[in-house]
């Protein structure tokens, strides 16, 4: 079982510290990705999704970001114990990352070929120039760009095409884990569909494991195997996509997210949004972080942090389910 995991994060805690305040960005999360599977990390702005990704890459802002505790096991290596040099070998080669904004991930004064070639040479110094070129062309055609365009500059590509180039760069070394941070958020919906399908196909072909960070449950339903829902630096619910989309129990926050999306199929007049706002991460509530916005909030929720409830593959961080037999499941309707 253990060997099936490509990534295993245990009790990770991350803070951002400035002179003024301490932001508790991640408060003890556990995250597992099986080999060849895709985990969707869902949540809103400020939930700690990107911080999680940056912690795995060990790219937290040096001055402020601090990992307080926890372990990140990546294929039998403990990433947090690696020296900076060893970590550099992992980064890009074995774990690659795709960022949200394709415009800023590419160097405007280098051709696409040069940028991809650089990524290849960084980890394969002994390849000849012809071999590198060969790989660049394969990478480009893999993401659906004509290899003849390799000598063009980023500005000659449209947004969707740029994101394809970025993905080609990330996949060119055939990483074991691809972290995609909202890779399609900046794209139009028809282009998003193209890119998503391409990511799905490539993932299946190369067999890469993936951490897909998104705020869009639709994308999760389309391409993820497992999901973790993040709220205020905690994972409030996790499980397989079926646990989450069709399971009997749902965390009230997850339920709120579903209710907030205008449905294409039903004609309801009002949405049922989650009331209020995300708590201030420099001043989190004493009990459950979601309690102030929760419809099912009880006394215990305000005073005590909930413990994880595990039911097979499905985990929930909520007092409602603490005593599974007695707890009322949040109804679909209300």
């Amino acid at each position: 079982m253990k060997n099936d995991l490509i990534l295993d994060i245990k009790n990770l805690r991350v803070i951002y510290q400035t002179d003024l305040e301490t932001v508790e960005a991640i408060n003890g999360i556990d995250l597992k990705i099986n080999k060849g599977k895709t985990l969707g990390l869902v949540g809103e702005t400020g939930a700690g999704k990107t911080t999680t990704a940056l912690s795995i890459m060990r790219l937290l802002p040096e001055k402020t970001g601090k990992i307080l505790s926890g372990e990140i096991h990546f294929d039998r290596q403990e990433l947090l114990k690696l020296s900076p040099l060893e970590m550099r070998k992992v980064r890009g080669n074995r774990i690659a990352m795709v960022f949200q904004d394709p415009m800023t991930s590419l160097n405007p004064v280098m051709t696409v070929r040069e940028q991809i070639a650089e990524a290849i040479k960084l980890h394969n110094a002994n390849l000849s120039n012809d071999e590198v070129d060969q790989r660049v062309e394969t990478a480009l055609s893999m993401v659906g760009i004509l290899p003849s365009r390799k000598n063009e500059y980023p500005h000659q590509f449209s947004g969707g095409m740029k994101q394809r180039v970025v993905i080609a760069m990330a996949l060119v070394c055939e990483p074991d884990l691809l972290i995609a941070d909202e890779p399609t958020t900046a794209l139009d919906v028809t282009i998003q569909a193209q890119v998503l399908m391409m990511i799905r196909e490539l993932r299946d072909r190369i067999g890469t494991s993936m951490l897909m960070i998104t705020h869009d449950l639709g994308i999760v339903a389309k391409i993820c195997d497992d999901v973790a829902v993040m709220y205020a630096g905690q994972i409030v619910e996790s499980g397989t996509v079926f646990d989450l989309f069709t399971g009997e129990k749902r965390h009230p926050y997850t339920q709120g997210l579903f209710d907030s999306i205008p449905s294409l199929n039903t004609r309801s007049n009002r949405l049922k949004p989650i009331q209020g706002l995300m708590p201030d991460p420099s001043n989190l509530p004493k009990g459950c972080c979601f309690a102030p916005r929760c419809q099912h909030c009880m006394d215990i929720c305000i005073n005590e942090r909930p413990k994880q409830v595990i039911e097979g593959t499905h985990t929930l961080l909520c007092h409602l389910f603490a005593d599974s037999s007695a707890a009322p499941a949040p109804q679909e309707g209300e």
Binding site: M161, V189, T190, L217, G218, A221, V241, F245, F258, L264
Partner: peptide
Amino acid sequence: ALLSAIPEPDISKRDEEFVLIKGE
């Protein structure tokens, strides 16, 4: 194409393919 390209948060449509339109 526009309608089909929306990823719906509905697990039963997981395997429905998008009707992709080519190009940009």
